[in-house]
């Protein structure tokens, strides 16, 4: 891999000025995507600015109807948090199914959503629960955060400081994992929220998306049968060696059905 300057930031301001002042600076959170990407020479940043020493970005707290997760919280911490497991068990389980134990020990929620891999798990939870993404500059609604394949609403020099998840009355995430990477070939997050049912799909398309027809059906009857016959079109879905677009479309219905069943306990 090409060399770069490594810099450990001491504060959010320090990190932002280091990244914006560099020729091509990037934030380094857990490094589970960017390090392999640089190794493959698919990215060639001039500077990596490590957020591990920045205070205020870690931690998980539950207050009232909200679960707050720091941008640098590791997947293993979210998975092992008894507070998360009590408030939103689907979120703790989702975190425990990302990658493998060593990836979960390093990878962070902020890094995952800022990268917005089309097959990542966390985007489904952020959109499926109607979460709010907090950055060093503003709050962004989960529905507006993911804008396309590896694209987000983040501007240069803007970093994810945390995510606020409203606690749903029930929720579940079901994924059909790639057997080698554990990335979602298709993952469906369903939730019964105060604003109505939400269905968010990851892995199937270039970016996480909601399925309005399923949400309407679940509003009338939050049961697996309500979504069992709803098929989504495969025109805009991903097709690769792991699964055809047609198969992914089929899996969306299957995973949605299973997720609703699990949410209903």
């Amino acid at each position: 891999m090409y060399d770069f300057n490594y810099r450990k930031a001491s504060s959010v301001e320090d990190a932002v000025s280091a990244v914006t002042g560099a020729e091509d600076g990037r934030f380094l959170a857990g490094g589970m995507t960017i390090i392999p990407t640089i190794k493959q020479r698919l990215a060639n940043p001039s500077d990596l600015v490590d957020l591990a020493g920045v205070g205020g970005l870690t931690g998980i707290s539950v207050s009232g109807n909200t679960v707050e997760i720091g941008g640098m919280a590791r997947h293993a911490e979210v998975n092992a948090s008894s507070e998360v497991a009590a408030a939103i068990p689907a979120l703790a389980r989702l975190a425990g199914g990302i990658g493998d134990p060593q990836v979960r020990n390093r990878g962070t929620i902020g890094g995952s959503i800022a990268n917005n891999d089309p097959a990542a798990d966390y985007p489904a939870a952020v959109v499926g629960l109607g979460a709010t993404v907090r950055t060093n500059r503003r709050e962004i609604a989960g529905d507006d955060f993911f804008t396309g394949m590896f694209e987000t609403a983040l501007e240069p020099g803007e970093l994810v400081t945390g995510v606020s998840f409203p606690v749903p009355s029930k929720a579940a995430y079901m994924k059909f994992p790639n057997p080698a990477s554990r990335y979602a070939i298709v993952g469906v997050f369903v939730a019964a929220t105060s604003g109505g049912p939400r269905v968010a799909v990851t892995g199937a398309g270039p970016c996480v998306f909601r399925v309005a027809e399923m949400e309407q059906a679940l509003a009338g009857n939050f049961a697996p049968e309500a979504v069992a016959d709803i098929k989504i079109g495969d025109d805009d879905l991903n097709s690769d060696i792991h699964a055809s677009a047609e198969y992914r479309a089929h899996l969306v219905t299957v995973m949605a059905k299973r997720a609703v069943a699990q949410a209903n306990g």
Partner: peptide
């Protein structure tokens, strides 16, 4: 904590 040392920079382990 177990980590994959091929996916962590030496500097990160300072």
């Amino acid at each position: 904590i177990s980590v994959k040392s091929c996916t962590m920079l030496a500097h990160q382990a300072e």
